[in-house]
Design a protein around this nucleic acid. Structure first.
Length: 513
RNA sequence: GGCCCGUUCGUCUAGUGGUUAGGACAUCAGGUUUUCAUCCUGGUAACAGGGGUUCGAUUCCCCUACGGGCUACCA
């Protein structure tokens, strides 16, 4: 029996959850779920300059809101899952969140003492050294190397400093960093990647990366390696931007005498012009999609298929989160970047909307409807539960995003203005149109309350129309909606009720004279 | 510039030496008991280019082109 799988999603609190980040988190989640492993949420806040207030809370909220609840690590304070866990404590630095799990703290700024200890170990074993070089010297060095068409690398000037000199300079208050000591004779560094296969990079191309900054904070490289080992992470699933620095991480594992995890580098999401997905060319924040009325399930389903597919010739397109977890496999993860084109997301979202019960859809669409001016000014009877239920019933099949609820059906909330020129069907005279409307009025007046249903009204009107469907149904539909395009007349009549139906027909008749 | 990664319809992709190169979205056409939407049916549409290897390459190798990432005391 092999050890249980443990993966982590480790964002920096520098902004909102990005759809690319969502995909990375999702693949981590799916892999963990599939193998009954742990999905850890860790926060990498070692860059104090880039810290954005509130970003961490927003990140955690987006993640949980979309259904990717971590099994371990940072969680929302009010999260109901927390009470189920044995260990839970408040974060010292972030009042809005707490932590669950035995491998904490899960916020890197609370682990500084740990990194310090491991950095010292590295220095003691000769795998790292202190460097006192000024930024000016570093800039100059880089400039020279670039001019000579060489790869910009640190020249190891400080690697040969004696421990006495180092101690003296530190004692004198001189600022310093800790650098990784890449061995000269290391040769090829090879690591296993679930997406690319074996990747090989020569050690000569690896720079003596800074591990600890002058402010005492670790860089990503040190912190993530130490944490991944201490948190017993078995698979590092992250973005492709980390591929070139993975050899540094492998070197660190070797220096500590630790076994490296298995890597999986995911391709980046792309703009339509194939450049790295950016805000300039559309929304990239998960929040944006949620606030536009895309359903979490649809967004997850869509993002999962950007760079992955169920394989085996499957033609299934709609997958729930648990179905995705069951089908997920790195063998089917693509090596090429995927363009983030949301047209298919629209279709998927519509599929999920159609699959919902009317009650569920009403509940989810209501917050969006409440913001519409035509809704706000509508009479109370049109805000009643049964009325909204009817509105949603006839709107469901034509809805793509929740935020569009009611937009094309404002006539269900306010009395429409009738354009008399719109009333006649294909070349009919005003007289013929008026006759059709009078006829409809007579028939509808006689319809009993129990027959005032979608189905019965449809049958009754169709029967009355006989051969001349357009001549009869079109003017009625326009009279009820005032619109060129709308749901069928029986649906509108059903929603607004008999009184309003008859009064709208009367208004239309008046407009004809 | 250097290092690394990639390249099948407009987009997401299936495909692992022999296929009429399949599906989905989008698009176009027709149909579905009035319009719109839904739904159904059908159509257009792709292996970046050049060399090899092979009886045979979309599949394997090399080169070129193009795209992307990294090249920070950012992650």
């Amino acid at each position: 029996m092999t050890s249980p799988i443990r993966v982590r999603f480790a964002p920096s609190p520098t902004g909102y959850l990005h759809v690319g980040g969502l995909r990375t988190a999702l693949y981590n989640y799916l892999f963990a779920k599939k193998h009954q492993g742990a999905f850890i949420l860790r926060i990498e806040d070692t860059d104090r300059d880039r810290f954005v207030d509130g970003a961490l809370e927003s990140l955690v909220r987006s993640l949980e809101g979309i259904g990717l609840v971590p099994t371990e690590g940072v969680m929302l304070l009010e999260d109901p899952h927390i009470s189920e866990r044995a260990v839970s404590r408040h974060s010292n630095t972030y009042p809005g969140v707490s932590e669950v799990g035995s491998h904490g703290p899960y916020i890197q700024s609370e682990r500084l003492h740990i990194y310090r200890k491991y950095a010292e170990k590295l220095i003691a074993s000769g795998h790292a050294y202190r460097c006192f070089c000024s930024r000016e010297r570093l800039d100059l060095l880089r400039e020279k190397q670039t001019a000579n068409h060489e790869a910009p690398k640190y020249d190891k000037l400080c690697a040969s400093l004696s421990s006495e000199e180092v101690a003296d300079r530190i004692a004198a208050g001189e600022p310093s960093v800790v650098r990784l000591n890449v061995p000269n004779d290391r040769g090829d560094i090879v690591f296993r990647d679930l997406v690319r296969g074996d990747v090989c990079i020569h050690a000569n191309n690896v720079d003596d990366q800074i591990l600890v900054k002058t402010d005492g904070y670790p860089t990503y490289h040190l912190a993530s390696v130490v944490d991944d080992h201490l948190m017993e992470v078995t698979h590092v699933i992250r973005g492709e931007e980390w591929l070139p620095s993975t050899p540094k991480h492998v070197l660190l594992y070797e220096a500590f005498g630790w076994e490296p995890p298995i890597f999986a580098h995911l391709t980046l999401l792309l703009n339509p012009d194939k450049s790295k997905l950016s805000k300039r060319q559309g929304d990239v924040a998960v929040e944006d999609y949620l606030s536009k009325g895309y359903l979490p399930e649809a967004l997850i389903n869509f993002v999962a298929f950007l760079g992955w597919n169920p394989g085996q010739g499957s033609t299934k397109e709609v997958f729930s989160l648990s179905e995705l977890a069951e089908a997920f496999d790195f063998a089917q993860v693509n090596k090429a970047g995927a363009v983030f084109d949301t047209r298919k997301l629209d279709w998927l979202n519509a599929q999920y909307i159609k699959a919902m019960t009317v009650e569920e859809l009403t509940r989810k669409a209501l917050p969006f409807l409440r913001k519409k001016t035509y809704f706000v000014s509508a009479p109370d009877e049109r805000k009643a539960d049964d009325y909204l239920h009817r509105v949603v019933t006839i709107g469901q099949e034509r809805l793509t995003v929740l935020s569009a609820i009611g937009d094309e059906h404002a006539f269900l909330f306010t009395e429409p203005d009738i354009d008399p020129s719109l009333l006649p069907w294909k070349g009919n005279s005003p007289e013929e149109t008026a006759e059709a409307l009078e006829n409809a009025k007579r028939i509808l007046t006689d319809v009993t309350d129990s027959d005032w249903t979608r189905e019965r009204l449809g049958e009754i009107l169709l029967e009355a129309a006989g051969e001349k469907r357009g001549d009869f149904l079109w003017p009625l539909r326009v009279a009820l909606s005032g619109a060129k395009q709308s749901p069928p007349p029986q649906d509108i009549a059903w929603v607004i009720g008999k009184t309003y139906t008859l009064s709208r027909i009367s208004s239309a008749l008046e407009s004809l004279t």
